[in-house]
Amino acid sequence: MAILVNRESRVICQGITGRNGTFHSIACRDYGTNMVGGVTPGKKGTFVDGIPVFNTVEEAVLETGANVSLIFIPAAHAKDPILEAVDAGIGVIVCITEGIPPLDTASALYTVKQKGSVLIGPNTPGIISPTEKCKVGIMPGYIHTPGPVGVISRSGTLTYEVVDQLTKAGMGQSTCLGLGGDPVVGLSFVDCLKMFKDDPKTGAVVLIGEIGGSAEEQAAEYIKKEFCKPVVAYVAGKLAPPGKRMGHAGAIISGGSGTAQGKIEALTKAGVTVVENLTKVGQAVRDILS
């Protein structure tokens, strides 16, 4: 078991014939993912390293039974492929693209929620379930190893850093996913915690937050009330000056809210082990699990 993606997932890539789409579709397949197809309008009948390409998502779903989609479409045009995936009945949509106008994301997300699909991202490294040999994203697969730790994060490289520590400390991962660095994203920490709660293979969760918004505070509230597995958290951006976007479009302190300090306090109050030194996250998880 794992959350959202597993051995049975049938994955397509929208934008498979582009440079990134091709590279990462092959990398995902090499990791073990069941890549059943790709979509690029006008390229039907061609193959990308043996993976069949279709003109539309609808067609790809009919022919392959796909239920997960990985999107690599430039930001200016990324709303349409999300909607296309929803309409074709794709249950889990992973949108890697960075820089989508937030109003586009917001309007696509409205339809995603209405139809009961799940959107991971945008501006996410994706999702990987090492226990299920399934990777739908751009993370380096080799740093992961199967095990009991669930990882949820708002940042890509920060996740790699933590996963690397976990693996080196002998603690594998059930599922690791990036929520995305944009102000509006599909999944929240709370959504993921709910899934990890019901996943018997996940014994502990690492939550990696950053400044901006209030997703960490909401997670703290939920953990306090309903989440009984151990949680270790790290929140980046203590030194971030207010009003500046720290690389991610969503990482901004505005009007005094969304500070790292506020998030750390909320999580600590909820009983979460908050680690202030990033390099000690792996050790903190090991202390709790042993």
Binding site: S153, R154, S155, G156, T157, L158, T159, E161, G181, I208, E210, I211, Y234, A236, G237, K238, L239, A240, M246, G247, H248, A251, A260, E276, N277, L278, T279
Partner: peptide
């Protein structure tokens, strides 16, 4: 000089710690 926004923020935090 860091790659990734989150890791860049975390690097600043680490220097400050």
């Amino acid at each position: 000089m860091v790659n990734g926004a989150g890791l860049a923020m975390a690097t600043l935090d680490l220097i400050s710690i």
